[in-house]
Design a protein around this nucleic acid. Structure first.
Length: 812
RNA sequence: GCCCGGAUGGUGAAAUGGUAGACACAGGGGACUUAAAAUCCCCCGGCUAUUGCAGCUGUGCCGGUUCGAGUCCGGCUCCGGGCACCA
């Protein structure tokens, strides 16, 4: 019979569904594996990035299930978010309807790939039951002081009367109406992730070897811990007067206290209160330029050339009392270190460049080469009074000590990490469960009133905030005093939902109505043993989820610190050199691939095309080979005449049959490493292809039967439909449970081939008995290499066992 | 701009510091066929040479360490990801 993927795949998908084959056991005594691929945003259709993500996860889940682990492999939908509202604006569709229709369509697409998901645990984060528990967590965070309200700047479009996401700002203008976007101060909700910064940073060490080093480095840099000195610059008397007596100084943070004597100016961010005050009093010459600077986003400023304006006021150097002129500069971040820096052009590259541009003095205080810019290393102190001659590392500690002793400042730890802004002025999100009461202020909703659900009757135009525009929704009564009050109209960032879904999946769905997270279930299943997702989530999602899990732990919901034990970051699927994404519209439709070749071919192809960690540049012509391999495998079923793993006397076989067995067992040996550690499925598939090629070159029925028995076992996680079909027919599926033992005798070689290299360059080869001594090998190698050794004297002889011989020679 | 990666034949790729290009795709040649498809066999980095054996060169660029570097180190180039309201 011909290979018919359509029929085979449908057949086994139905059987698996009927058997509930992928539902985990509730028995917490069983050894478990929690295999999780990041859940998708229901954008409409799946793309190749999804296929890659879910096929990798599925192969790992199937591998462990085959070894009789209790496997949790769930799927769900990250269902809130902006694209649903964009669809509403563009096509006048309700976000809820759009989202659920997308989910239904994408579920069918994923089903057609034969993914082994636990279906009873599927949910969408826009479900009210999910929102209900999330709102309770948010209230608990507020009550524990971790969540607070504060004003910061957002992108604002005046005509649309709405806050814009960074993505919605194109060249500084609104994506809808093209108006220049302004930076506007607005209140929002924040979660104090900085409070957990030290734990999040320190625990990265526990993930060494389990997460890609690249991700650990990125997270560590993102948290950006630095230890230094915080001190206060006093303002000169005339400067205080110019500021109307409102300020007498300002704080700065520096990691280079050792360069304090090299300060020649100080710089403030355009948002700094002192700058604001000068602008307010009209007491600064370059006010329009400074205001323009304040209108730029942080990233625009970082990309712009360094720019600054003298403020015409002075601070006093804390140790020398000298006047230090103040500048307002675009490279000073308002969000870090108090929005002010001391500037030491001699020992900081950024300050040096700025000083060059504005002809500011440079004062060297550490000995070192300054011919090509700032000297930023440590060294011997100079021009620093009592610290001269001291090593700068030692001087740094001494100077901090001096500031502390004189009560001028103190040692301080600073983080680049900023608190997590979780509020969005949008409709399609989880409502933030608070009420604004004229008498009581900000009051959390009563837990028994949760969930606070979205109204369905909204008009979404892109103008204003639909919840604010709604005639009645925000009218409510204060949960505390009962007076008329206003419901909060902000909704939660969608990163909040994706920060605890791994705990929700672990909770038995029968408890979903009464519990957000079941502690016993969570403690059994968590941490996720293998998490799989795109490298683009390396920082934000993974850091927020690590943080949120710890917060829930501290609120008593679980006993987990790290949610994800091991992480595999798949490379992106690129097309035309760029990320395939819904916003760029450069997607490839996997449905056509599946319709033409079947799910097994699609699965094999996506795993064979490249190692998972690497970027995959899309190329549809390579699918053919994957299909051909499956077909060949299928056609060889007639070669398996034994119904079980045969007993074989290796020594009696032809050399071709020996080679076939060696290749087969080589693939088997490789498989453990691939499925459990490296995930380089492409090399395992290549090894299986080599084994099949070698089996084809011989005709021993026992070797054939053994080969097919083993190859089916190795390939089941990758191409499960065709493998189960063949295994069912040939071996009654006996080869699909448990591990197959290696047989060492098949790897024993009679002879080995060694390369003969001269000065590292390969010249020829020799074949030696595998038990040849080093002396015998050298003798043979010299004989084989006579041609290149004539007239040369051998300086050194190197024998690398089973690999090569190298002669280091020179003309004699 | 800052942080993190990547670069190997026409293409996707393989290679514990030890014979570069396994395994595939595309291409070329052949067998089978009335023909085509499918299948099977052979060739396939570049240059030079050739009846034949062969020689040189080659893993983005420049330099270094080493008996030996695609792999380690330093400096670049180009491409990609992230940069806190896309997910």
């Amino acid at each position: 019979m011909e290979y018919n993927p359509r029929q085979i795949e449908k057949k086994w998908q139905n059987i698996w569904e009927e058997e509930g084959a992928f539902e985990p056991s509730a028995d917490h005594h069983k050894r478990k594996k929690y295999i999780l691929s990041m859940f998708p945003y229901p954008s409409g259709r799946i793309h190749m990035g999804h296929v890659r993500n879910y096929v990798i996860g599925d192969a790992i889940a199937r591998y462990y299930r085959k070894q009789d682990w209790n496997v949790l492999h769930p799927i769900g939908w990250d269902a809130f978010g902006m694209p649903a509202e964009n669809a509403a604006i563009k096509h006048n569709l309700h976000p809820k309807k759009w989202t659920y229709e997308n989910i239904d369509y994408m579920r069918k697409e994923l089903d057609s790939l034969g993914l082994s998901f636990s279906k009873t645990r599927e949910f969408a984060t826009c479900n009210e039951l999910y929102t209900r528990w999330e709102q309770e967590f948010i209230i608990k965070m507020f009550e524990s002081g971790l969540l607070y309200r504060e004003s910061t700047v957002v992108n604002w479009c005046e005509p649309c009367h709405t806050v814009l996401a960074n993505e919605q700002v194109e060249d500084g203008c609104c994506w809808r109406c093209g108006t220049q976007v302004v930076q506007k101060k607005m209140p929002g909700y924040y979660i104090d992730i900085v409070k957990y910064a030290d734990e999040l940073l320190g625990d990265l060490k526990l993930l060494e070897g389990k997460w890609p080093q690249q991700v650990l480095t990125m997270q560590s840099n993102w948290i950006g811990k630095s230890v230094g000195l915080n001190f206060k610059f006093a303002l000169s008397d005339d400067s205080i007067a110019r500021l109307g007596g409102e300020f007498d100084g300002f704080s700065v943070f520096t990691t280079r206290a050792d360069t304090i004597y090299g300060v020649t100016y100080a710089a403030l961010a355009p948002e700094h209160p002192i700058v604001k005050q000068l602008l307010k009093l009209g007491a600064v010459a370059d006010a329009p330029q400074i205001e323009a600077m304040a209108q730029m986003t942080e990233r625009e400023r970082a990309q712009a050339p360094k720019e600054g304006y003298a403020l015409g006021i002075d601070a006093l150097h804390p140790l020398t009392g000298e006047k230090v002129p103040l500048w307002c500069a675009n490279f000073v971040l308002a969000s870090y270190g108090g929005g002010a820096v001391m500037s030491v052009p001699a020992h900081d590259q950024r300050d040096w460049e700025f000083a060059q541009s504005y002809h500011l003095p440079v004062k060297q205080v550490i000995q070192g080469d300054m011919s090509s810019g700032a000297f930023t290393l440590s060294g011997t102190m100079m021009g620093s009074g009592e610290f001269d001659g001291m090593d700068s590392v030692e001087a740094k500690a001494k100077i901090i000590g001096l500031f502390e002793a004189k009560k001028l400042g103190q040692a301080e730890v600073n983080f680049k990490l900023r608190n997590w802004g979780v509020s969005r002025q949008r409709y399609w999100g989880a409502p933030i469960p608070f009420v604004h009461c004229d008498s009581c202020g900000l009051v959390p909703e009563k837990v028994e009133n949760l969930p606070i659900v979205l109204p369905d009757d909204v008009v979404i135009t892109g103008e204003g905030n639909p919840l604010q525009n709604h005639p009645t929704w925000s009218h409510c009564h204060c949960p505390q005093c009962g007076k008329e009050a206003t419901r909060e109209t902000d909704t939660l960032d969608t990163f909040v939902q994706s920060s605890w879904y791994q705990l929700r999946y672990a909770t038995d769905p029968q408890k979903w109505r009464t519990e957000g997270i079941n502690k016993a279930d969570a403690n059994y299943w968590l941490p996720v043993d293998q998490y799989i997702g795109g490298i683009e989530h390396a920082i934000l999602h993974l850091l927020y989820a690590r943080f949120f899990t710890r917060v829930l732990r501290d609120l008593g919901m679980c006993d987990i610190d790290e949610p994800f034990d091991r992480l595999l970051t798949q490379g992106m699927v690129l097309k035309e050199g760029a990320k395939m994404s819904k916003s760029k519209g450069n997607t490839v439709d996997p449905d056509q691939l599946i319709a033409k070749y079947g799910a097994d071919t699609a699965r094999l192809f996506v795993l064979f095309a490249a190692p998972p960690q690497k970027e995959l540049e899309w190329n549809d012509s390579a699918v053919e080979g994957a299909f051909r391999f499956i077909k060949r495998l299928y056609d060889r079923k007639t070669k398996a005449t034994f119904r079980d793993l045969p007993q074989i006397d290796h020594s009696m076989l032809s050399s071709e049959s020996k080679e076939a067995r060696a290749k087969t067992y080589e693939a088997l040996r490789k498989s453990t490493e691939v499925y459990e550690n490296s995930f380089t499925f492409n090399t395992l598939i290549a090894a299986c292809m080599e084994a099949l090629n070698a089996l084809d070159k011989q005709s021993d029925p026992a070797v054939w039967s053994e080969g097919i028995y083993i190859l089916l076992n190795l390939l089941e996680p990758i191409i499960p439909h065709v493998v189960t079909e063949l295994s069912d027919e040939l071996f009654g599926r006996a080869n699909l449970s448990g591990a197959i033992a290696l047989k060492d005798e098949v790897f024993v070689q009679d002879s080995i081939t060694l390369a003969v290299t001269i000065n590292g360059k390969k010249r020829t080869e020799i074949v030696m008995p595998s038990d040849a001594s080093e002396a015998e090998i050298l003798a043979s190698a010299k004989e084989a290499g006579t041609k290149w050794l004539e007239g040369m004297s051998i300086i050194k002889e190197i024998v690398v066992p089973a690999k090569l011989v190298n002669f280091v020679v020179k003309p004699s």
